[in-house]
């Protein structure tokens, strides 16, 4: 029983990070109908920037701030410079462009920071907490990870549902032409949508860095797991991305704990196929499928 609880706790922690990456993908998919294959590389770059701040003697929090700020800027720049020219073009163009960006960013990171992974400090201790004499697989840093992701989710939800800006962002994503006819500056909204998505991605990068280390290829798996979580959730639904992330995190934790840690990636594939067989449009898809 203790083992099950521990695996669940570990699953929720890693699931929170998957959920953040999935949310970054869903925000972009919803706004621009592009699957951002460069998301893993973008959060790798912002995490390297955070690492550089720490390496230069900056505090953890200054580094976190640098990652988030550079995420916002990187997201906006990528949309304006790389994605804008292929919007309203065949779907494949955007796929190729984001894949190309992924390769470029990875190569650039190798040239700037080198290929050897660097360690990254956690914000708090990673020693598990002890409850009634039992050690749990839940450390103060894990609680920080879950809390940080939850705080960002709540903030984004409030932004989208409660503010005028959020209303414009949603209108621009759902019906760009109609939104323009209501005076919404749709181009700006798309840029802002990418910036917000990259911000969420950059948070995930910093949170996962202590366990995967910081290197040009260290975050590739994050894209795979994040994408899996997003598809499980239906790709169109922010709530689905969060639930998909948590489900995937727990499923992988059980596979790793009860079967073998070598099978984790296979477990992700199995989870994806199982969900898609039962609900081909994902758990949270609205009725009426959309072309992926």
């Amino acid at each position: 029983m203790v083992r099950f609880i521990n695996l669940t706790l570990a699953g929720i922690t890693s699931g929170a990070v998957f959920a953040a990456v999935a949310l970054a993908l869903v925000l972009i998919w919803r706004a621009t109908r592009v699957v951002n294959f460069a998301q893993g590389a973008m959060l790798m770059i912002t995490t390297f920037i955070a690492w550089s701040v720490i390496d230069a003697g900056g505090s953890y929090w200054l580094a976190l701030g640098a990652a988030l700020a550079s995420g916002l800027v990187l997201g906006a720049v990528v949309e304006r410079v790389v994605v804008r020219p292929v919007e309203n073009k065949p779907h494949l163009n955007a796929v190729i462009v984001t894949l190309g960006l992924f390769v470029v960013l990875q190569a650039a990171a190798g040239m700037i920071w080198g290929d050897t992974p660097h360690s990254y400090p956690p914000a708090f201790t990673i020693r598990g907490l002890s409850v009634a004499g039992t050690w749990l697989l839940l450390s103060p840093f894990d609680l920080f990870v879950i809390g940080a992701v939850a705080a960002v989710m709540v903030a984004l939800t409030l932004l989208f549902v409660r503010t005028d800006l959020g209303l414009k962002l949603r209108a621009a994503a759902f019906a760009p032409e109609i939104a323009r006819l209501q005076g919404v500056r749709v181009g700006r909204m798309l840029t802002l949508g990418w910036a917000l998505a990259a911000l969420v991605g950059s948070l995930a990068g910093v949170l996962v860095a202590p366990s995967v280390f910081v290197g040009p290829t260290q975050f590739d798996a994050m894209l795979v797991f994040g994408f899996t979580a997003a598809v499980i959730g239906g790709l169109d639904s922010p709530a689905g991305a969060v639930v998909g992330g948590l489900l995937l995190g727990c499923a992988l934790s059980y596979v790793s704990g009860y079967v073998s840690s070598d099978l984790v990636t296979m477990g992700a594939l199995a989870a994806l196929i199982t969900v898609l067989m039962v609900r081909p449009n994902g758990l949270f898809a609205a009725s009426g499928g959309r072309r992926v």
């Binding site: 005028d164 949603r170 209108a171």
Partner: peptide, 14 residues
């Protein structure tokens, strides 16, 4: 051209 994903009030506000 109402935006069906938004509520009636949100459409009006927009």
């Amino acid at each position: 051209g109402v935006i069906t994903e938004l509520t009636v009030a949100e459409n009006l506000r927009l």
